[in-house]
Amino acid sequence: MKFLAMCSTGLGSSFMVRMNIETIVRELGLADVAVEHSDISSAGPGSADVFFVAKDLQDAAQGLGDVVVLNSIIDMDELRDAVKSAAARHGLL
């Protein structure tokens, strides 16, 4: 199972989100979840099982598959709920 955080450059906010997802994945004790980050232009539908983007990239991420749109990339409560839901959707919780 792969979670992919994306932003426009693949350097900044996607890395922040990736770190926070990794923290939450550890908290929840989710096994077999790889977390990565990249720029959105190099991601395709096969790049991951769940894609995380900030709301400015909501439109650009359409068509990738299971896309989670975050209002804030530094809100751990929002992200924790999003990761839990994603894990549940994919039978990990």
Partner: peptide
């Protein structure tokens, strides 16, 4: 259109 610098909670990271 680079509002991606908006981190939420009233905070932005210009770069």
């Amino acid at each position: 259109g680079g509002t991606y610098i908006d981190l939420g909670h009233g905070i932005a990271l210009a770069h």
